[in-house]
């Protein structure tokens, strides 16, 4: 069954109830509490923090990602259930940010995992996060957030990159 064949209802339900996995890897995690609590209140959009990947829809990569953590992130991502979305925070997952020449952080996340949405900034402010989530919701409704499908299709390619990263540190260069 293709994504397009999904009923509109299921997409709207998915959009209105984004459950976020509390798997925060880098410094961006500190921006999440204000988003959840009274000041910005993400719950009004139906978003809620969840404890385990089985329950969650959205995986937040909140900042730099070491190779060691990458292994765990991939495990967690594969434990999530379709449809699932990845949102990458800050500049580190885009191009390495201030850690671009570090020996143990990866520079480009979408070599290893299909990223649906990048959120630039170091760090993005809570308003930015809310804005990104709204953007993701629109993408879901339009059927554009299809990272999970891409991951299934190009599984070999992603796997190869992941293996390389585990062996040699990073594969971007």
């Amino acid at each position: 069954m293709k994504y397009e064949e999904w009923s509109k209802i299921s997409r709207i339900a998915s959009k209105k109830s984004l459950w976020i996995l509390h798997f925060c890897t880098g410094c961006g995690a500190i921006e999440m509490p204000p988003v959840m609590t009274s000041r910005f209140d993400m719950e009004r959009f139906g978003m809620a923090p969840m404890a385990t990947p089985r329950q969650a829809d959205v995986l937040l990569i909140t900042g730099y990602l070491t190779v060691k953590t990458l292994k765990r992130v991939i495990q967690v991502y594969e434990q999530m259930q379709d449809p699932k979305y990845v949102v990458a925070f800050g500049s580190c997952p885009i191009n390495g940010g201030m850690y671009w020449d570090s020996y143990n952080t990866i520079n480009q996340l979408d070599k290893y995992l299909p990223v649906d949405l990048y959120l630039a900034g170091c760090m993005p402010r809570p308003e930015g996060i809310i804005n990104a989530m709204m953007e993701l919701m629109e993408m879901i409704e339009k059927g554009e957030a299809r990272g999970w499908e891409k991951y299934r299709k190009n599984y070999e390619k992603y796997k190869k990159n992941q293996e390389m990263a585990f062996k040699f540190g990073k594969v971007e260069e």
Binding site: S10, A13, S17, T37, S38, D41, E43, Q81, P83
Partner: peptide, 22 residues
């Protein structure tokens, strides 16, 4: 908590989403 909170029909949306997971 002095927040706005989700709409009151949020429970239906959550359950629908979970059951319609692929």
């Amino acid at each position: 908590h002095n927040r706005v909170g989700p709409p009151i029909y949020q429970g239906f949306i959550d359950i629908a989403k979970l059951i319609l997971k692929k």
